[in-house]
Amino acid sequence: MTLALITAASLEPVSLAEMKAHLRLVSDAEDALLGEFIKAAREHVERQTRRCLLTQVWRLYLDRWPQGRVVPFPIGPVQSVEQIVLYDRQGASVLLTPADWSLARGTDPARLRVALGAGLPHGQLDGIEIDVRCGYGSAASDVPETLRQSVRLLAAHWFENREAGTELAMASLPHGLDRLLSVNRMPRL
């Protein structure tokens, strides 16, 4: 099972203005750097929780259907399945129709069940591609506040502790971040 980002989030869950207010910054001199810290913090929070904060499209590659033809998604929250494509050994593609599968979004993680007889892979490595739209929504206000606070804490920590040699900078994460992330971490099945 491999994941690849197809469409990235179009904005961040914490705006530059919000981050500057959090840090009590008035200067615009380091806006570009602060923007990079916000993006890196969001990506870190997403990796640690296995959740997309804002709407993104990911492609899940499978070699074969799992037991019972039920696919638990390794990321979430799942908004929809965009398409499912299978490839044979010659590279010809077959697009499954929505009638061939059902999505259980009410579980954590969300799961996809493919109907028996629909989409028989032919032994091709990565012969199954599932495009899935994930995220809490397309606006920063759609993201739960605990996850937005995690982004703010981490971006502020990196902004304030840029020197590798200080004792405080040696601490990998700010105090309390692990607790904020742990309550939002998606379980693995």
Rank of each mutant, 00 (worst) to 15 (best):
W65I: 06
D100Y: 06
I84E: 05
R133I: 00
G117H: 13
A110V: 05
L116H: 02
I84S: 05
V78S: 03
S138M: 05
L103M: 05
T97N: 10
Y87M: 04
C134F: 03
P66L: 08
L103G: 06
Q79E: 12
R69L: 07
L60V: 07
P98H: 12
G119R: 14
T107M: 02
G117S: 08
T97M: 02
D63N: 15
S141M: 00
R113E: 01
G119D: 10
R113K: 07
G123T: 04
D100T: 08
A104N: 15
C134M: 04
G119M: 09
V78R: 12
S102L: 07
R89V: 09
W101R: 11
R133L: 08
Q83C: 04
G135P: 01
D63T: 13
E82K: 13
P72D: 09
P72L: 10
F73I: 11
W65A: 08
Q67S: 11
V81K: 05
P98L: 07
G117N: 09
D100C: 12
P121M: 03
R64G: 01
V57A: 05
L125Y: 09
T107W: 04
A99V: 08
G76W: 08
E129V: 03
D108L: 13
Y136A: 09
G137P: 05
R111N: 00
W65Q: 08
L96D: 01
G123L: 01
S80L: 07
L120E: 14
L95T: 14
I84T: 08
D88Y: 07
Y87H: 13
G119Q: 13
R113P: 00
W101I: 04
E82D: 15
V85K: 12
D108Q: 14
V78L: 12
L120P: 00
P66C: 07
L60N: 10
G76N: 12
D142P: 00
E82R: 15
I75A: 07
V132Q: 10
L86H: 04
P109H: 06
D131I: 00
S93Y: 00
G76Y: 02
W65K: 13
L60E: 14
I128A: 02
I84Q: 07
Y61Q: 12
I128R: 11
T97K: 14
S80C: 01
G135K: 07
L95M: 14
G68N: 08
D126C: 09
I130G: 01
S80W: 10
G127V: 11
V78K: 11
